Amino acid sequence: MAERELLKTDVLIIGGGIVGTSAAIALRRRGVSVVLLERDLCGARSSGINFGGVRRQGRAFGQLPLAQRAHRIWQDLPTLLGTDGEYVRSGHLKFARTAEDFDKLVHYRDGAAAYGLELELIGAAQLRSRFPWVGAGFAGASLSPEDGQANPRLVAPAFARAARDAGTVIREREEVVEVGRTLAGFHATTAAGLTVQADHLLNCAGAWAAPLAARFGDNVPLTQGHPAMAVTEPMPYFLSLSLGIEGGDIYCRQVARGNVVFGGGRVEPGAAGVDAIRSTTTALFRQMRSLAALVPRLEHAQIIRTWSGIEGYLPDRQPVLCASPGTPGLFHGFGFSGAGFEIGPAAGEVLAELVVDGSTPTPIDTFDLRRFTPPSTAHTQSQSPQHNESRKATTT
């Protein structure tokens, strides 16, 4: 019988997306030893299959401090990762179809200013003169000139490489099947027989994070969502901005080589389950109608690839980013609801600060998982740390 492998570390991270790997980088900078376990390949799930929008505009106000922190990290991406990941501050333009939607953009502009996000409102009369490619009938738009876009298929693996280069022990294709905590600390065992012992545990398991959290009494109503994505053939370059729309049913961007990446809406998994999720013709036709209305010259564009993936969603579309209320040494960072690409690097740094310092200068009260717990239950959990649990889990 092969000898079972044992690793000991200060921090165990479960999940190799951008949040987990950026946390690993930040922890290694503080001299903390880290082991990261990933069920598949790092960055292969939501971190690597998303649209690639690096935007602050449109986020809930409570997310803007985290988004502003992330904005500074993205600015220095080549130093952090050794690659720019095709990141450009192209600007993000968000359209309003109706006067009511434009009023929402005005309200958002006014509220976002308190967080240092400056937005320019553009009325209907100016739209066609400034952006001649836009379709008719829009009531206006909001421009965030320093928001941008990047290639998630380059950026997500680059975070993992940078974490490994910083000294993180990364083990891919390691499905965690048992996890628990005793007075000696946390322990996790994988299907391949690897056991990791750690003083701290970071739950960055994305769409699979809820079962892991529940092992320690932290229950959250996380569901899985599946974005519908597509990309066109290369076309003459004309669209420097990343586009969105109030209501969120379509978004698109054009990359330097001419392809237009677009998405909007979600698809349902077929009989093969979430691991074989694909976009559908129904979703694609719906997107193309919205896309052609927004940018008419794309009406006859040829689609060369479609895809989907798996993202973790919470009812209020806000992530969980906090220390466990009942289990000392356990920290959560998941549930970014399809909008974690931009803020992921900052979320990772916040988790590292919670581990090392016990607090973070970035406001995160909005992201506490106790918002989903009835007050009486929350009080009971806070009084009952779990020290002797060893439970089965299927996580990332």
Rank of each mutant, 00 (worst) to 15 (best):
Q254C: 12
Q254R: 06
V176L: 09
K94M: 13
L202I: 15
L201S: 01
A60K: 11
R370A: 05
G248V: 06
R266C: 05
C204P: 06
Y237A: 11
T281V: 13
Q381M: 15
G17L: 07
L354A: 03
A184S: 13
R4M: 10
P234W: 00
L41E: 13
G20E: 09
I343T: 15
W133D: 11
G62N: 01
V274G: 09
R109P: 01
F51V: 05
P363R: 07
L80H: 08
D249P: 14
N151I: 06
L41R: 15
E5S: 13
Q302V: 15
L121Q: 04
H332R: 08
H379I: 08
I250C: 06
G248K: 14
G17Y: 04
R266E: 15
F372K: 10
S384P: 00
A166Q: 12
V255H: 12
T394I: 13
E3V: 15
P361S: 12
E86A: 10
Q287I: 07
T360P: 02
A70R: 08
A207T: 00
Q381N: 06
R59S: 05
I364C: 02
Q254S: 14
L202D: 01
S22Q: 13
I343S: 09
E38K: 13
G312V: 05
T195D: 04
P227R: 04
L284T: 13
N151A: 13
V295K: 04
A44C: 09
D165A: 15
G20F: 01
S376G: 06
G338R: 04
N151Q: 15
G58W: 02
G225K: 10
Q197M: 08
I18W: 08
E299L: 09
L121M: 05
P221D: 05
C252N: 08
T380E: 14
I277T: 10
P227M: 02
G53Y: 09
R109V: 02
G140T: 03
